[in-house]
Design a protein around this nucleic acid. Structure first.
Lengths: 239, 239
DNA sequence: TATGACTAGTTGTCTATACCAGTCAGAAAA
DNA sequence: TTTTCTGACTGGTATAGACAACTAGTCATA
């Protein structure tokens, strides 16, 4: 359970143990977890050490303390949504739509100047180019082009069709650190108009995203064209 | 300095004292603050109490700890920028433009249905309506309409022209808690076209923001129309 | 039937102390 | 002169214990 000889701090081990119970669903939302003194006794550590573990989880939004009552599992982890790092799929689900995507093309190619620069690779290095139409309730919402360096990830069409790109990233042991995103309004060009089933010259929202791994290396750049008449980008900002 | 008889927790008092020095600019970015042991001695409290104060400030992004070296004032309120809660002025400055704004109209009026609902007030309650053109290097960038309930804040034209609305909010003792924002692409209507010096039918970015105070009450709703050809909305997302 | 006092249980605050683990500069050794 | 070591600093982890503040139930009393 808790290994006192481990080089990992005790509070960290306790933290992980609690997090696991929450993630596994063993302790559901609003469940009251054992009291600090109970933890201390069970794990044979001091109450302050337990408090440090719990404090961290409170700061991360996993737990909520109520003076005089106890410590409870928080309602949800909304943080990710707040920070906007959601995939199209999650985004649409949270709005109550049925998301889907249609693969237009998937190929290996070489990076041209701008793409290479953004991905921080050499100009002729191999990259995957993935073109998809994103649908919500079977209505085309966006046309999305993704570029990923080949040397980072082994991909094939079934990866894209079935799982999400991000689960492949995780499988490869990479962790996404942050992303920068830009949004601008524009007018649809011919190429998109057909796919998105809108008239040429209609309003579209261009979203460009660049995702970075914890290693500091760019994972992908994504260029999306959203229908202006159907899509609104929502952000919640704290503080 | 620190009042041991006060009902306010000692760590909280220390927290405020440190925050004040940072806000006043007495301790600038990258300044090393006194060590935990020094604080403990000066304030005549235990080191653990000092740690609690510092921990909170680290969590809030004010301070950064470096083992073996010390505790330092964080680079700047990057966090605010990350979370996107920046004003037009700050936004433009950070991009190297010279921001300005031209007041188009400022008047008291009564809230119509939708505005009232958004501001959580009665339908005929008084509100300020502020219309402004936002400029960057003297080029019109956005046309912005702001609604604020009169009963929340006493405003006059000079407030708007000189200071920012947010400094008035602070003066009144209010603290902004969070905001929700939506972005969508659209086509400019006649009314905006003239003011923004673009042709009718050009791409524009509509940004709607609703700001909430820590009291839970909505402070304002802001409706902005940005020129699609000149403005890009940027977000950085962590985690 | 209410009301208030008590009690056991919770988290919140705080102390005093100990040792561990990086960092860095200056003293000692090569 | 250069290298190595040591000591004094930093924050990081952990203990044991005390009392305060708050919650909710119990029980005696008006």
């Amino acid at each position: 359970m808790i290994d006192k000889t481990s080089p990992m701090p005790l509070y960290f081990q306790i933290e992980e143990a609690i997090k696991q119970k929450i993630d596994k669903g063993e302790w559901e939302s609003e469940t009251m977890i054992p009291s600090e003194r109970e933890f201390a006794e069970n794990y044979e550590v001091s109450r302050m050490t337990v408090r440090q573990a719990i404090n961290n989880l409170v700061n991360d939004g996993y737990l909520t303390r109520r003076k005089g009552k106890g410590t409870f599992v928080s309602a949800k982890k909304i943080e990710q949504k707040l920070l906007g790092l959601t995939s199209f799929t999650e985004d649409m689900k949270s709005r109550g739509y049925r998301p889907a995507s249609r693969l237009i093309s998937f190929q290996k190619t070489t990076a041209e100047n701008r793409v290479a620069k953004a991905l921080e690779i050499e100009e002729d290095q191999e990259i995957y180019e993935i073109k998809r139409v994103r649908l919500a309730n079977d209505i085309p919402m966006a046309f999305e082009t993704t570029y990923v360096p080949v040397d980072l990830l082994e991909l094939n069409e079934s990866h894209i069709k079935e799982g999400s790109l991000y689960s492949e990233v995780e499988n490869a042991g990479f962790v996404i650190d942050y992303a920068t995103q830009s949004l601008e309004a524009s007018i649809s060009r011919e190429a998109e108009s057909e796919i998105l089933e809108i008239t040429k010259g209609a309003a579209v929202l261009l979203i460009k995203r660049q995702t970075y791994l914890t290693t500091g290396r760019p994972l992908e750049i994504v260029h999306s064209v959203y229908r202006g008449d159907r899509y609104k980008f929502m952000i919640d900002m704290k503080r």
